[in-house]
Design a protein around this nucleic acid. Structure first.
Lengths: 332, 332
DNA sequence: CAGTCTCGTGCAAACGCATGCAGTGAGGGA
DNA sequence: TCCCTCACTGCATGCGTTTGCACGAGACTG
């Protein structure tokens, strides 16, 4: 086993007949180097296959160029999409994403964030995870900017990027009402999430504006099995809703499966269904799910922008909630 | 803005009245420290909120405890699943995953891997991406173990974790044949991928064993739009197949959509459909896709095991292809 | 031609930690 | 009592960079 020694800037320096500082400067954009030495160094570096050690640089500059991403589950297709966009956007800015999976429990998040901080990440994105406020303080104490993605914290002035969930809920209500539905139900997500609260608040607002109340309500916790059980409880009765707003697409798929496959109900004839997110598969003909679209690209762009500003030292306030759009498809 | 100074092992040492070495040893499992100083140090560390800097440790020990993961696209639900399992498995071993998105093109992979190596990753997992052999050499020269996931490289002795794709293809053929189908087609994935070649080879084997040939063949490149086009070409004709093996589930969904929604064909009555992977949504009633299951957990476990052994210095050879299973559902 | 500026370069000091080595003290056996 | 052993601890060095500082050489200016 030929243990190839690690090549350092010193090796390059010797070969190019210059000092370590010179090679360093060649690889530091905006540093003062003559074209002559630069080319000598580049040549030597190529010959030796040298690339600066990011970790060593990180220690000195305090900037690791890595962003921690905490995400709870990837089975909801919204998050893989986000992860992909996020990673691409950050790579474009010279950063990379260190992934941390967190289970639901809050103490787990606590633990996970500690681990992240060990890596001296330059910033932190918490997607679909609730953050205790003292944890937020810990991060701030460590000087690590945090942005909450698709979730917000009522109390503190935490940086949070969210869609206009309230408006989304309202649009959902208005659309169902415009269809002439009157017995309208709601299958909620996890009630600890701000998204859930806002979506439901907007939805209720929309119902009230039309003089309607909620016909039925169940909780699905943003989980597929839970959502299916919720659907069974809500619909396996003669006196059932004729429309339902499901708090996200992922659950809506499960609900639609129960309605059509288990209960023999027709969508949208017997019951109209509307979701939230507009994940790619919502457009697939097998579901053709009417939904409220969250603009993932815009959310990601906004989040990255905010995070990088904060990293750059600019004090940033939470951007306004991003607009959502009603996407009409076959289910409502 | 209260810029909280970063707390180092020296701060802890001072507060505990010991030397930096002592602090270091407390956080190094297996080092020689008395219980008395250990508790003093731990107390001080907690009070100050100290945690060892992983990067600094990485420089010294040469082990960064981070694993690079290169993945091309996350819209195929197989990969988010894998990412989740992989991250969890590695976290259990004290590692974390640095994600790199790579487009299809080989030169992009080249570039991406260079970037990864800058981070001094302890290992590299390439999922759904092909590795040029000189790139493999570069990695080996840097002393970074690499394992290919769900892809293999014919030429070199690269470490690769794959399912028994050949057997999977064969199972698919046998199942369709057992259903009495005779006009059997295949919609292929990306032909540069070893998975595609193996699946198709096994499939052809199965057909031949029954004295059958391929009735039709199109290429979907593992991409959804391509697969739909392929389906249109294959089925928008009176003389169409009565069964088709689609090289993965993701494409199979698109194919089924085209068959049912665009062409008004019934699955499985008019045409039987079988996929590959068994992603979670294959089980959803709206598709109820018969498929060849790849055991993602087993693949991940195997990959992690192999990678860690290699990191540990043990010379490892590629594990045997992992078994696959036929999952019968409604589509065939 | 002297003075001033600019540009390019090398030196050396950090960054935060791990670890070999030597030294301390306590305990135990003879 | 003396010496050896052993568990523990501190010192100092090094990991691969970046960067402030000083210095030398030209290039300009007047």
């Amino acid at each position: 086993m030929t243990t190839t020694r690690k090549i350092t800037s010193l090796d390059v320096a010797k070969r190019a007949g210059v000092s370590r500082s010179a090679v360093s400067r060649v690889f530091t954009p905006g540093a003062s180097v003559s074209e002559r030495t630069a080319s000598k160094v580049r040549e030597a570096a190529n010959a030796l296959g040298y690339r600066p050690n990011v970790l060593a640089r990180a220690m000195l500059t305090g900037k690791s160029k890595i962003i921690g991403l905490v995400v709870a589950y990837l089975d909801n297709h919204f998050y893989p999409t986000v992860l992909e966009l996020l990673s691409e956007a950050l790579e474009r800015e010279g950063y990379h994403v260190l992934v941390f999976m967190a289970a639901h429990s809050a103490d787990d998040v606590e633990d996970v964030v500690s681990q992240i901080l060990d890596y001296q990440v330059d910033g932190l994105i918490l997607a679909s995870v609730s953050l205790s406020s003292d944890l937020a303080n810990r991060c701030r104490a460590s000087g690590v900017p945090v942005v909450l993605f698709n979730r917000k914290l009522e109390a503190e002035g935490e940086l949070a990027v969210v869609s206009d969930n309230r408006m989304g809920g309202r649009l959902a209500a208005e659309h169902l009402i415009s269809l002439g539905r009157t017995r309208i139900g709601h299958i909620a997500g996890w009630e600890g999430a701000s998204t859930q609260r806002d979506r439901e608040a907007g939805f209720m607002e929309g119902l009230r504006a039309a003089g309607l109340g909620l016909f039925a309500r169940e909780v699905g916790d943003y989980r597929l099995p839970r959502a299916k059980e919720a659907a069974r409880r809500m619909f396996d009765t003669p006196d059932r809703p004729d429309a339902v707003f499901v708090a996200n697409d992922y659950m809506a798929f499960g609900v639609m499966d129960v309605l059509r496959s288990e209960l023999g109900l027709r969508v949208p004839d017997d019951v109209a269904l509307i979701g939230f997110d507009d994940v790619p598969s919502a457009a697939w003909p097998a579901y053709s799910l009417t939904t409220i679209r969250q603009h993932a690209e815009a959310m990601v762009t906004t989040a990255v922008e905010a995070l990088l500003s904060e990293i750059g030292g600019t004090e940033v306030t939470s951007p306004a909630p991003l607009p959502v759009t009603l996407i009409r498809r076959g289910s409502a």
